[in-house]
Design a binder for these strands. Structure first.
Lengths: 323, 323
DNA sequence: CTGTTAGCGCCTTCAA
DNA sequence: TTGAAGGCGCTAACAG
């Protein structure tokens, strides 16, 4: 490239890196260099540049199961968009939850001199980050390590819980609120926080929770739990399902017992996944803002002086499951 | 690192790259070097190595919407696993279907000297690959460009269609088969191929298709289409839904009309997504083998002499929706 | 305003 | 069996 335009590599470098102005390079020289670059289809080798500048414009992403086809992979989409906007690229490694693989991938990313690292979990949880992760230039996405000074990005679950309660209050519900689902995963954040928000807001309005049905966050279990409740004579005025799969199971159980939504029972859910829109009627769901979280995480990792924690708003997704 | 062990960089390089044997290096020297490397936590800089060897052990992945929380992102998981096994890493870029972004990302990947490129689409289709993609070292995943010599990996949809038909034949269905859904996307492969397989196999058994209900591949549309069919007096013996979302809509419509599954109507579907397992009863679904496809694609891109096309089997996922 | 020089960290010829 | 030297493609000092 250097000689192709009949100039030195330096000049070319300046021009191609947009520092022609700053270096006050002659207009025709610039013209000539650009033309030459164009004609020979010159493309800088980012590896060589990285070697020199020790900056790769790449962000490493280490996930447990995020890429595996779950709704949660929207975090990747958001991160990708933000990375693209910042002229960076994502290097992704999925661990399947295997600590050995995790170690391996962290080393791998570090060897590649990524500019930053995102540690992402499918489910929001408290955990211990791999020791190898550098304290700076790492961001925990959808998880948090209380013992580390690593910034984390989480959904604002408590506020989300309050929002769900508010939806019911706005609809005039004053009793008979049944919560379905108790987070079964140890160290999980979502369940307890949502419940806290729900009961907190209801309590402020002088409304109590009639029952909490304990079940895994699956369609089958939710169906079974709600069915059992109804069979035992329970007649809830409203169901708060801790995620959309639970809502689906609840819908099935209500249908089985001939109860209509929202006529007989109002239903509010969490996640705001596609599934929420597939139910009949569409369920009101407090959205997990995965894309925004991914975006935010990339912003943090690129920020030399990031805040230590970011809570992302959970907007209420409209539906027809509440009168 | 060189001096840390009191040897030259050459020796260290040989040892750390496992060519100690071949170079017949003294045992104690090797020992000493390894110890030194360990103690100072030496890690080779992959960028520097790439510069020298012009091989990055990275595979670029360019997708339209694959990472966006769809079921299809399982292709990424499969690719990731295979890449890991081959000691490679995935560099992922999502385009949102924007051709300008696509161009940008292809250049980006090329500049980074990835060893191979995967071009992935959420929906299987015929398309024109970006001209910038090199003919070798590129693999089309879930898509194909008939004008290019680029290897492609696709699900074997026709065989899948035949498998679906076989399920019904095995259950003794001999008439009243209604197909729900006609692929609305131009250049889409799945719809026509599945239909071809279904009608082909049925025809061999002397069974005709009673009707094909035209609708988008969404829950709402499927509900509407099946409802309309039933309202018009249609009484199918079996429904073949071209994907799981359609099956969900069909379930809702059948329930509305008081028809039971599989008692009144048998249902077979395609995709084998999680949704299939959430329906009551679980729907028999011909699985889109996304993970296997991703794995296979990585194998192809690493293969110096790959086959030009790979069709991956679509296994039938069991369910209780067929008598 | 532009060219020369040096070196990022690694690997590979070539000598010793 | 090991060391010294050169260069991958690029950019940051430093001259001129």
């Amino acid at each position: 490239m250097a000689q192709a335009a009949g100039v030195s590599a330096t000049t070319a470098s300046y021009i191609l890196n947009g520092r022609a102005q700053q270096m006050r390079i002659a207009g025709d020289t610039e013209e000539r260099v650009r033309a030459a670059a164009e004609s020979i289809g010159y493309r800088p080798d980012r590896n060589a540049r990285s070697l020199r500048t020790s900056s790769t414009a790449a962000i490493g992403v280490i996930t447990d199961y995020v890429a595996s086809g779950m709704f949660s992979s929207r975090m990747l989409a958001g991160a990708n968009a933000a990375a693209l906007a910042a002229d960076h690229v994502l290097v992704i490694g999925e661990t399947d939850g295997d600590p050995r693989v995790t170690q391996l991938l962290v080393s791998e990313m570090l060897d590649r001199r990524v500019d930053g690292l995102l540690f992402v979990t499918r489910t929001s949880l408290r955990l211990t980050l791999p020791a190898e992760l550098p304290d700076d230039r790492t961001v925990a996405l959808n998880c948090v390590d209380d013992a580390r000074a690593v910034p984390s990005v989480l959904p604002d679950e408590v506020a989300g819980g309050r929002a769900a309660a508010q939806v019911l209050l706005d609809a005039g519900v004053r009793a008979g609120v049944v919560v379905v689902g108790v987070d079964p995963t140890p160290n999980a954040i979502a369940g307890p926080a949502r419940l806290e928000g729900i009961s907190g807001r209801l309590a402020e309005a002088g409304v109590g929770i009639a029952a909490v049905l304990d079940c895994d966050w699956t369609v089958d279990q939710a169906f079974a739990a709600v069915s059992a409740h109804l069979a035992a004579g329970g007649r809830p005025r409203a169901l708060v399902c801790l995620n959309d799969r639970i809502a689906m199971g609840a819908y099935q159980a209500l249908a089985e017992f001939g109860l209509t939504i929202p006529g007989d029972v109002a239903v509010v859910s969490f996640d705001g996944s596609e599934l929420a829109g597939w139910l009949r009627p569409k369920v009101v769901s407090v959205e997990l803002p995965f894309a925004a979280m991914g975006r935010r995480a990339v912003e943090l990792v690129l920020d030399p002086d990031p805040p230590s924690q970011v809570l992302v708003d959970m907007p209420v997704q409209a539906g027809a499951s509440v009168s």
